[in-house]
Design a protein around this nucleic acid. Structure first.
Lengths: 133, 133
DNA sequence: TAGTAATTTGTAATAATTACAATTTAATTA
DNA sequence: TAATTAAATTGTAATTATTACAAATTACTA
């Protein structure tokens, strides 16, 4: 995704156009690797050595708050992020640690009638195809 | 669940019968509140002041490893635990923090053919009925 | 009952995340 | 375009859940 497109999206969400915010979102849209904050930070400092780790956390939080990112809470010790906000599942290979996207129908649920569901997460884990071979 | 029953279960799993382990599992089966390690620890020290926090972590890990507990990773900052190992979803109210169980059909998935799925987690979040009123 | 391997315990270390205050900056207004 | 202001960035310090580790204890076996 180019900067022009991101600019439009940010404006429509009422977000300030900071270079850091744009860089973080650009990285997420171009690298669907479900990175965590540290991974994003390490990529950011490559092109901007003054980039702060706190800024990464702030940007990721802001982008989640306005619906441009989804937090992927599939690891026990850190939060990952995904710029694909459409409904899909995440599979974590417990052997290699990789996160895979998968298509997934929405479940029929009961017992939470009159609850207001705002986010639905489907997390599977096991052994991926490559690690089984 | 009584101690006799737990004894049988632990023996069938090849687990050593330590009072700490039994107490942790008993608490989980009798209190389906999806507690985290600290909550379990605080309950344990009430009846046994020498109970260690590390022991709680060890016991919870062991019980998960042998399939008697399921880790519920719905919070960003801590792991909860559930003695109900049957397939069901978890709803977290972002207002009051409460975790609710709900019935949930398994999704039809694609894109992870030949993957070996060992655990399936469905996490919803939003506003619970009580908080909406 | 003695031996042994596993478990418990307490302390210290680790690692992700958050708090906070000073500095800088994006967007607005004159 | 320059001044203003509220918001964002930055760096450091604090917080919190979890893990590492070694010594003491204990459950089980023979």
């Amino acid at each position: 995704m180019n900067t022009q497109q991101i600019t439009e999206i940010f404006k429509s969400k009422g977000l300030k156009l900071t270079p850091q915010r744009i860089a973080v979102y650009k990285f997420l849209t171009e690298n669907p690797i479900h990175p965590d904050a540290l991974t994003v930070y390490e990529k950011m400092v490559e092109s901007n050595p003054s980039f702060s780790k706190t800024t990464v956390y702030n940007c990721l939080q802001t982008l989640c708050d306005c619906g441009l990112l989804i937090p992927v809470n599939i690891d026990k010790d850190k939060i990952r992020f995904d710029a694909d906000t459409s409904f899909h599942g995440h599979f974590k290979c417990t052997k290699c640690g990789e996160i895979y996207d998968f298509q997934c129908t929405e479940s029929v649920v009961s017992g939470i009638d009159e609850f207001e569901t705002l986010q639905k997460d489907v997390y599977y884990s096991g052994i991926c195809k490559r690690c089984k071979e």
